[in-house]
């Protein structure tokens, strides 16, 4: 064994020297190479995992928002349909009411018209009676040459009116 070590030039001092050399290198590399590089790798891994997590959160949020918006849209559509139905009902009711009111007004107006016509008719009848009576009196005065008294007037007027009435009735038939 000793001969082998001598042949290969193995000496404890060189083993120690090399070991010290290696340990110095190990410490330097650990301080200046491994630690910063591993730190950067760790930082990058963390950034990537954070980004992925955020992206997942955003996707989940987006899906939730989509579901919510669909729900809102559906709800709004239902509400709109209800509003439209209500409006339609209200409109029908208003139209019906307006119709009814207009009918009532028309009836009232017709009734009022009828009343007015009747009044006008009566007034015209009376006026015509007076004018006719006047004309008859005037005619009789011219024919008889005397001024008729009240009983004469009344008698003549009644006779004329009765004859007129008969005439009108005959024409109407």
């Amino acid at each position: 064994m000793e001969k082998i070590l001598t042949d290969f030039g193995v000496q404890p001092i060189y083993l120690v020297a090399q070991a010290v050399n290696f340990i110095i290198l190990l410490l330097i590399l650990k301080r200046f190479l491994y630690r910063p590089v591993l730190k950067v790798l760790e930082h990058r891994k963390k950034t990537v995992s954070d980004s992925l997590r955020k992206a997942e959160q955003i996707t989940a949020q987006l899906q939730k928002t989509e579901v919510k918006s669909a729900e809102k849209l559906s709800e709004a559509s239902k509400q709109a349909q209800v509003i439209i139905a209500n409006a339609s009902k209200t409109a029908d009711r208003i139209i019906a009411e307006a119709h009814e009111k207009a009918q009532v007004d028309v009836d009232i107006m017709i009734e009022q018209g009828k009343q007015s016509i009747l009044v006008e008719q009566e007034m015209m009848k009376n006026e015509m009676h007076d004018k006719l009576a006047g004309l008859v009196v005037l005619g009789m005065e011219r024919i008889a040459g005397k001024v008729l008294d009240l009983p004469d007037h009344t008698k003549i007027v009644d006779q004329t009116i009765n004859s007129l009435k008969e005439e009108i009735s005959t024409r109407a038939l």
């Binding site: 050399n21 290696f22 330097i28 590399l29 200046f32 190479l33 910063p36 590089v37 950067v40």
Partner: peptide, 26 residues
């Protein structure tokens, strides 16, 4: 042994210089 020390120095210098140039975007 001389070559061993030389390699150690080269690697150490490389590590020190490289450590100053490490960036997030490599």
């Amino acid at each position: 042994l001389v070559f061993s020390i030389l390699v150690t120095i080269l690697l150490s210098v490389f590590a020190i210089v490289f450590s100053r140039k490490i960036t997030v975007i490599p």
